[in-house]
Design a binder for these strands. Structure first.
Lengths: 196, 196
DNA sequence: GCGGCTCTATGACAGTCGTTATAAAACACG
DNA sequence: CGTGTTTTATAACGACTGTCATAGAGCCGC
């Protein structure tokens, strides 16, 4: 049986492209015109698919990235928290290296740009939700391996925050050394937490 | 004896204002016109003081923030790594809370925005330098308290990355809970590393 | 007072931005 | 074929951007 992967629709291409551009240049510097061009879609289509404009596009880009990372995280966590951590780190390492240190995490990018005062920060709320989803997956796996609930929640927050911060540091330094440092420390931390 | 604090020059006000605006809206969304207005300085003055334009202004804003945090970090580290960590965390907690979750770290903001392809990323290099300065201070203090050099360097990277990431998460969630989680975990981690 | 320097004021340049309106095209389905 | 819906094309709107040029103020040592 053969299943041909459906070629992505124009709408999907726009969202994926927006996520990529946001992860490189930030939300404000990502223009709708360029995302459309990057996805080989006309400008008019963007406002057809995303009638609420840029906020909606950013929101969907954040959610897409969140779901993508969550799926990988969920799968690998079945082999335990250490395997999950490694998968999470490798995922971002790939992004950083494949882009020659030009891309990072669009969820972080959206989180640190103050939204215009007049509108509800939909994309920011989506970013908060993605962080919580990632933390929840990690904390759940830690609890399953005997870590106390409060300790598990704290550790999950630390992992997500450290990975996000490390990716940014790798971009600034144009080096993956921060990821190596963080990986070693977080792995040891998890191993120690599980053993208790 | 009485020493009047010298009122900051227009140049200093511009740099400080730029750092604040970058920490809120990101580098690309911070316009030179608005920084000038925010500092009650005319637009012409900005190009007088910063003839290399926006890159130079961003670079100085990053360095100002870096030096400001480094000074606090250096002072408090004299009381040991745990005190230094607490000071570092409190510093950012103050920024986040005083701004009602609208401001963060300008160094991080600069780190995650791809510079225009045609110019040398001066501000990005400055951000890398600031991260290294912070890591160096923390690693040095850890070594002084008996932590192995490699372990100290890794732990310092983790601390800086985690704090930066946590501040961003606090903004997204509009809560300081991530900072509480990270603070607890990092403190325990340092205590454990020192005791060995 | 007076030259010379630092700083300000003002306006302009060419470009991009988010968004909207409106018309044409492409398509699906009977 | 026609018809109704989805998608594209194109132009325009006001506003904003980084940068530069130039003319004027303010202030220094002499």
């Amino acid at each position: 049986m053969h299943v041909t992967k459906p070629s992505p629709t124009a709408r999907e291409r726009i969202v994926a492209g927006a996520a990529d551009m946001i992860s490189r240049r930030g939300l404000n510097a990502t223009s709708i015109r360029e995302t459309a061009k990057h996805a080989r879609a006309p400008l008019g289509s963007t406002y057809h698919y995303f009638p609420e404009g840029k906020q909606q596009l950013a929101t969907e880009a954040v959610r897409l990235t969140g779901a993508w990372a969550a799926r990988s995280l969920r799968e690998e966590l079945e082999a335990g928290p250490v395997a999950g951590l490694r998968a999470f780190l490798d995922l971002w390492r790939g992004i950083v290296m494949d882009s020659d240190f030009r891309a990072g995490c669009p969820v972080l990018a959206v989180s640190i740009e103050e939204p215009p005062a007049d509108e509800t920060p939909l994309a920011l709320a989506a970013a908060a939700g993605v962080f919580e989803e990632w933390e929840g997956l990690l904390a759940g796996s830690l609890r399953e391996h005997g870590v106390e609930p409060e300790q598990a929640a704290q550790l999950a927050t630390l992992i997500v925050a450290a990975v996000e911060g490390t990716v940014a540091m790798c971009r600034a330094k144009r080096s993956t050394q921060p990821l190596d440092h963080t990986a070693a420390q977080l792995q040891a931390l998890i191993v120690g937490a599980i053993r208790d």
